[in-house]
């Protein structure tokens, strides 16, 4: 084996599939993640995120296709301490203390970071002597993060790491991850919290039904969610008048308030302001949640979710706690 690897790819998935009997959890994923990228693996429950992660970590065997982690087999990458993971649940012994858990993990690797330093980074120094079973869900997640850091891996994979955390804990958790990623570590995290992907990733990979349906920067993904929404006031406006405007996709009217969605929102806004009595005009990017539904939802769900106005429409951008399913 070469001592120095020149690959710039952290993860390379080629035509990856995984079936459990008649259930096709992963149906052909091609994905290349470069070193230093912070990537969100976003999709609804059952999209195949965890199965894909299990294959990247060597916990599951692909039905077909290949996985390379820094050009190595997953098991080799783990043996060299190149990759570590923060799993969603489990993986902890309740009767060990936090510090014992981290020492135990560190003892298994050849080269490790100092335990005190790792505990400081993960924010578990204060609870070092607490039994893991007595830690809250958020604290246990920090312990898992500390365990993932001891081998000073080049790549950290997090599988829905903030499930069950409250908003403040979640933010603090991501701040530690983000601060750590500044040092050039590659991060791949699975989530179904849309805001998490938007706020913390440089790149979002959308998966649905075991396939990648979109891949790009958060801005690109939002743009893929087909344009922006325009609100304005127009006394006595009718649906027909709005539908007649070139470029308008969907239309909703509440009294004198109108809301239209358009791919070319600039053209529609210009038309409304110059050729109609519309005033108090507002252009808003559609929230990532809309994009999420449009991209990953079934066609029926997606179109049902499009004309959002009044009713149960969340203010844009969407709220912190929204979650798909």
């Amino acid at each position: 084996m070469l001592d120095v690897m020149t690959t710039s790819t952290a993860i390379e998935l080629t035509a990856l599939t995984k079936s459990f009997g008649s259930v096709h959890a992963v149906q052909g994923i091609d994905l290349s993640i470069g070193q230093g990228e912070v990537v969100a693996f976003l999709g609804p429950n059952g999209a195949g995120k965890t199965t894909t992660i299990d294959m990247i970590l060597g916990l599951a065997q692909p039905s077909s296709g290949t996985v390379a982690v820094f050009g190595l087999e997953p098991g080799d990458a783990i043996a060299h301490g190149l990759v570590s993971a923060v799993m969603q649940t489990g993986g902890l012994l309740k009767d060990l203390t936090v510090k014992e858990t981290i020492r135990y993990t560190a003892a298994l690797f050849a080269a490790t970071r100092p335990i005190e330093e790792v505990m400081e980074t993960a924010g578990v120094t204060e609870i070092a002597n607490r039994r893991v079973g007595k830690c809250s869900g958020g604290e246990q997640q920090r312990v898992r993060f500390a365990m993932a850091l001891v081998s000073d891996p080049e790549l950290i994979i997090l599988d829905e790491p903030t499930t069950g955390m409250d908003v403040a804990t979640r933010r603090a958790f991501w701040d530690s991850i983000r601060a750590d990623a500044e040092r050039g570590r590659t991060v791949l995290f699975a989530t179904h919290y849309l805001e998490e992907a938007d706020a913390y990733a440089d790149r979002i990979v959308f998966v649905r039904h075991g396939r990648v349906v979109a891949d790009g920067t958060p801005a690109e993904i939002k743009a893929l969610g087909s344009g922006r929404a325009i609100r304005a006031t127009w006394e006595g406006v009718t649906r027909e008048e709005l539908r007649g405007i070139p470029g308008v996709d969907t239309v909703d009217i509440r009294g004198d308030q109108l809301l239209v969605h358009a791919k070319d929102s600039d053209a529609v806004a210009r038309f409304l302001l110059t050729s109609t009595p519309a005033h108090d005009l507002e252009v808003v990017a559609r929230g990532i949640e809309d994009a999420f539904v449009a991209l990953t939802g079934d066609e029926a769900e997606a179109s049902a979710a499009l004309p959002a106005f009044g009713d149960d429409t969340p203010d844009l951008p969407t709220t912190e706690n929204s979650e798909v399913r």
């Binding site: 001592d3 120095v4 710039s8 060299h80 020492r103």
Partner: peptide, 27 residues
Amino acid sequence: MSAPTIDLSTRPRPNRGLLDLTVLGIE
């Protein structure tokens, strides 16, 4: 993005016997 190289010689596989005293002590 730069393409850093990874020197595997600084990341050896653990090369120890079956018994690790830290782990045994915790167990």
